[in-house]
Design a protein around this nucleic acid. Structure first.
Length: 221
DNA sequence: AGGTGATCATCC
DNA sequence: GGATGATCACCT
């Protein structure tokens, strides 16, 4: 089990070392069994690469590489090499929403510095045979940051007004709000339109595939 | 109770 | 075919 990388250089070297490996090969190196599919193990691959690269924040609300302040995200690619799923960012604050500034938001902090790791994910490739891609260590540029901030401010304005029930995944250009829970009966406390405590489905911020595809393409094109 | 890692299943 | 809403497993 690798210890946490101490420099970006070291982290990138580890990425190079696993690039091109199949999931079966990487799992074997770590002495981990590969499940038949991801249906009941949705986060398995993300956790495998965390382990492979020496992420040390396992399960904590901190960057995956704590010393470096870097977040790790896998990007599932389809047969055309395009990102095929949205990317989970963080929970939407449904209670302390008013007065929250972009610079203090979880979205801003999570996306400050991200190590994107593309992985083959087309449904017709058995999990074991999927290959790890070339990692991209990324910082949002001014344009990306502005797009994220604009969406965040628009979405959070509705949340702060307690209008989250009228928000759905169609709002937001690059960032969207969707349910994030074990199932649709889970409830969390929130502050409603009249400032009253209420309960609602937990929501999360997700990056649309258009955003992640664009940042991959900008780098690999 | 709510965070981490996400993909699944269905509808348009 | 792509996006939305639902769901899975495990952790702190």
């Amino acid at each position: 089990m690798p210890s946490p990388p101490t420099t970006e250089q070291e982290l990138l070297e580890r990425c190079r070392a696993i690039a091109g490996l199949s999931v079966a090969e990487l799992a074997a190196q770590l002495d981990v069994a590969v499940p038949a599919n991801l249906r009941q193990h949705k986060g398995w691959l993300g956790e495998l690469v965390e382990k492979a690269l020496g992420a040390d924040a396992a399960g904590r609300s901190e960057p995956d590489f704590r010393a470096l302040g870097i977040e790790l995200k896998t990007l599932p690619l389809n047969a055309q090499g395009k990102v095929q799923e949205s990317t989970w960012v963080c929970t939407v604050p449904l209670r302390a929403a008013s007065g929250l500034r972009w610079e203090d938001s979880c979205v801003y902090h999570k996306l400050r510095h991200v190590l994107w790791l593309p992985v083959e994910a087309a449904a017709d490739i058995p999990l074991s045979d999927r290959h790890i891609g070339n990692a991209l260590l990324w910082r949002a540029d001014a344009q990306q940051l502005a797009a994220l901030q604009a969406d965040w401010e628009e979405l959070m304005e509705a949340v702060a007004l307690g209008q989250f029930e009228s928000l759905d995944a169609r709002h937001g250009e690059v960032l969207q709000i969707r349910p994030k829970a074990a199932h649709s009966r889970v409830l969390v406390y929130a502050i409603g339109p009249a400032g009253e405590p209420m309960q609602t489905l937990p929501r999360g911020f997700y990056l649309r595939v258009g955003f992640t595809n664009a940042l991959l393409q900008a780098h690999y094109a």
